[in-house]
Design a protein around this nucleic acid. Structure first.
Lengths: 340, 340
DNA sequence: CGGCTTTCTGTGAACGTTCCCAACCATAAA
DNA sequence: TTTATGGTTGGGAACGTTCACAGAAAGCCG
């Protein structure tokens, strides 16, 4: 057993009490920063803590408090995409920052298959975490349902269509899509198509809806193709299909930067210039955007802020705050570069 | 308090015992799959568990067992790079897969600043985790030292130069670098430079050493530039510098694919063709590699396997297995594409 | 100086497990 | 029939905290 290698067992609150000559109860009060502790006692305890190298035993604490001081970040994403999607990393960082400042531990749960889904549900039910932040939920997501049913403090990043009364933090995909599409039109494009992706998510749906709304009467369903993933390949395949359907296409809204990158390469191979022959815009302002030639016009989303807000939302609920009915949409910013 | 919202408190082992008419001790034995339980008892217990919806309380368990069944994955990386480095995601996925199969929980700790470093050390000391996997440690990494000192089961991914007797899983950066550089020479390049990066890490150092070894007498220190990060910008800045130092340069080894991508864009802007005028190779086989025009020759590293092995290594130690003195290097594969 | 309030301190009783030991029960051997 | 044997079971004790409560000490007021 690895832990008994070094016999000196970890110091407990009793050791601190013994060394300082102060009772266990008072030591606990010092530890938790509670009032009604004399300066003399506090100092004695603090000295003893340093002397014996005391570190609080979380298991014992959470056994009695019925809390774990941990919050789950549930990432529901095909494995291969955890790394492709630049937003996930940023969301993770934002969440981590807020939680660790509040002295909570972030536990990242990655799930992919349905089997994982059961495992995670079990995990949540087991009281391992006091709350949950759910990323990229899908329509009818079993985890979302499990969380709702359990009633633990939770927040979504993004806004799954059917999700119950769990608050969410998202970006205005619809507005941003509308905005960027409008600009595409304003630069004189007349045959504008879209390579949509991830229509099983709110982000995918909303971007498509925004596109449709911006085009209004000029919307042509035959110039929309859609695929499951926000990926480079999606863009490549999608662009070929669009060119086949409408060789004179002169504007493309790609559902993400990666998609746009795939589309641009196909356009180049097909002998089209960007933005000369075809204007193209993406979404995310990820590293894809700057490495495209020409650089991609796109939508910047405040990913780490999404993570921060979601974490704050869960913490608020944990402190007994209200669980707001709806959600919050953060503003995005359109970044105009050279591609459209 | 969020948890008392639904009064029916969680079922305990006592409830299971009461409902099944079997003692607490035997219920615990069933729960842990121990021997010496009659079929009759086992069935009764299992039925009762389902009936009352029992889920084990981890806090209570780990209080008595002195174990948490959690393992830390410590990612030591500037925040912005967590997402840039494609390997990290894959390592994370591999680790997660192995650990969750073994019924361990992976806790991801991201740390950046020195302040985080203390926090993490405290966390490890607190017994929150039974073991640790450390990613991308640096020379003199405080976390590496803390882990070594604590003596908890651990493994490195990568091989920090000064790290104490903690086993590591890595790739043969040196051999791979030598191999890919050699090929660059075999295609007739005579003025070969390197854009090195992350020399405070073993990976950065070893790639440089491999490069130097491959060149042997032809090695020219003035054709090596180095920067802190494996990033696109590193490649751009580095390439400009190399061109300034040696306009006739005809071969470049970039320390990563992202670096190579930056370098290629600069070469293009400078009117050089790839691979005509300049042959260029990268490292990682990430999404950058296929995105480049022409596609990049690079080294594929089995990132998720690194994660898996590291996890297995820690699990072995946890089961009382030996802590091997050295480490394991996994083989890499050179992928020849068009850029050299 | 007595009573009242406020601040401070110590202690018993949980929390829900696992571990361990003692006891029980068959069955087989003597 | 007794004795040993080994599978099976039950329950006390412990793990390290927090919490509630009771009581001590100190400060205030008349």
């Amino acid at each position: 057993m690895a832990r008994d290698r070094s016999l000196p067992r970890r110091a407990t609150i009793h050791d601190v009490a013994a060394v300082s000559g102060i009772s266990r109860g008072t030591v606990s009060r010092v530890l938790n920063g509670e009032p009604y502790v004399s300066d003399r006692a506090r100092e004695a305890v603090e000295a003893a803590i340093r002397e014996v190298g005391y570190v609080r035993n979380t298991a014992a604490r959470s056994l009695v408090t019925q809390r774990s001081r941990a919050i789950a970040l549930i990432v529901h994403e095909p494995h291969a995409l955890v790394l492709e999607d630049p937003n996930i990393g940023n969301i993770l960082i934002g969440t981590n920052a807020v939680l660790s400042d509040a002295d909570y531990q972030m536990v990242t749960l990655i799930l992919d298959s349905a089997r994982d889904s059961d495992r995670v549900a079990e995990y949540l039910r087991g009281g391992f975490v006091d709350g949950a932040i759910i990323l990229s939920a899908r329509v009818g997501d079993p985890i979302a349902l499990a969380v709702a049913e359990l009633g633990i403090p939770a927040a979504f990043v993004g806004h799954p269509p059917n999700a119950p009364d769990i608050p969410f933090i998202g970006i205005d995909n619809l507005g941003a899509a509308r905005q960027i599409t409008t600009r595409l039109l304003e630069t004189g494009r007349s045959r504008v198509g879209m390579i949509a992706a991830a229509l099983d998510r709110d982000s995918g749906q909303d971007r498509l809806t925004g596109f449709r709304e911006a085009l209004g009467e000029r919307f042509d369903p035959s110039l929309v193709v859609d695929y499951p993933l926000y990926a480079y390949d999606t863009g490549a395949v999608g662009m070929r299909e669009l060119l086949r359907r409408e060789p004179l296409i002169d504007g493309v809204f790609a559902a993400s930067d990666a998609v746009a990158a795939g589309a641009m390469d196909v356009l180049r191979d097909a002998g089209r210039t960007v933005p000369g022959d075809v204007g193209i815009v993406g979404f995310d302002d990820s590293s894809w955007a700057i490495r495209c030639t020409p650089a991609l016009s796109t939508v910047r989303q405040p990913a780490d802020e999404l993570g921060r807000r979601a974490a704050q939302q869960v913490l608020t609920q944990l402190q007994g705050g209200p669980r707001p009915a709806g959600g919050t949409l953060l503003q995005t910013e359109v970044v105009w570069r050279a591609s459209a």
